[in-house]
């Protein structure tokens, strides 16, 4: 790869992008001639912060390789989704308001999780539906929240990041990325350009892995059954690596696979894009 910091990103890697899907926002403020780096605030998510720090590091490196100026507002913790999903809306609002403050100055908030991005973009609006002032703050945040793969493809408009990853891999689309964020294509567009990567179809890819946050420990017998089905489908592909955009799913599927003694690797998309570059 050439000088990754030249201008904003390597123009030779840009491919024309088809028309944006309705409902998906394309950034209009960025032009290819832009020389000022784009400023992005990373919302690391509590699961990556606490359990998978290396994924966060990959996200930072990939964004910086694209010439993006990344910062990490240190006051951030959790988006509040575990509370919201458990019905504790009052406490979820408390954490949401912390997020509003932490990212008040940001122009883009990049979230390496379809689920947390859905919380911040979609569910915060529901959470403050009856509170005009906070609804406006939720709307302002919602407008600048992007899931990681979505940000790369829809805002930076890149597909080929020059990454190399050898081996056969399957991609598991997380439910919230698919159905709340509404991003079906970006991860596979990005993976399609990774050199040496043989991407194979995952049977029943769009069915839930069974993680579901506290659902996984509140109804473990159901969650385990769903995880077992997903693991069976992953094993059936013969892939060596399973890739996703949500560490919750990967903790569930990876935990199930490793308990079975399988040596299939699970990787966040950012880790794959952060592979050796050509």
């Amino acid at each position: 790869m050439g000088d990754p910091t030249l201008g904003c990103y390597d123009l030779s890697r840009l491919l024309p992008l088809g028309p944006a899907k309705p409902g998906l926002r394309r950034n209009v403020g960025i032009t290819l001639a832009r020389t000022e780096p784009i400023k992005v605030s990373l919302f690391a998510t509590c699961i990556i912060d606490q359990l998978f720090p290396q994924v966060g590091a990959s996200v930072v490196r990939v964004l910086r390789r694209m010439g993006v100026d990344v910062d990490f507002p240190p006051d951030q913790t959790c988006c509040g989704q575990p509370l919201y999903n458990a019905g504790f809306t009052r406490q979820a609002r408390q954490l949401a308001q912390r997020v509003f403050s932490s990212f008040a100055e940001s122009s883009y908030v990049v979230v390496p999780s379809g689920s947390c991005a859905a919380m911040m973009r979609v569910f915060y609006l529901d959470l403050f539906a009856g509170d005009q002032q906070n609804y406006a703050r939720a709307q302002a945040l919602s407008d600048k929240v992007y899931e990681f793969s979505e940000f790369l493809v829809r805002v930076l408009e890149v597909r080929d990041l020059g990454a190399v990853y050898s081996g056969t891999a399957a991609y598991h689309p997380s439910c919230h990325l698919l159905r709340e964020v509404g991003e079906r294509e970006a991860p596979e567009l990005l993976l399609g350009q990774v050199a040496d990567l043989n991407l194979v179809d995952l049977p029943q890819a769009e069915s839930c892995c069974g993680f579901g946050g506290s659902f996984s420990v509140k109804y473990p017998h159901i969650s385990e059954g769903m995880g077992a089905d997903k693991a069976d489908n992953v094993l059936a592909t013969g892939a060596e690596t399973l890739i996703s955009c949500d560490m919750g799913c990967l903790m569930q599927i990876g935990g199930t696979l490793s308990r079975r003694g399988s040596d299939i690797k699970v990787r966040h998309l950012a880790q794959v894009l952060d592979g050796e570059t050509r």
Binding site: Q50, P53, P220, Q252, G255
Partner: peptide
Amino acid sequence: SRWTHQRDLPALPTRSFRDLW
């Protein structure tokens, strides 16, 4: 324990992301 019945659980690594940062 309700997780680990049929699934492995990652332990907390030495450093969090914010430490790395």
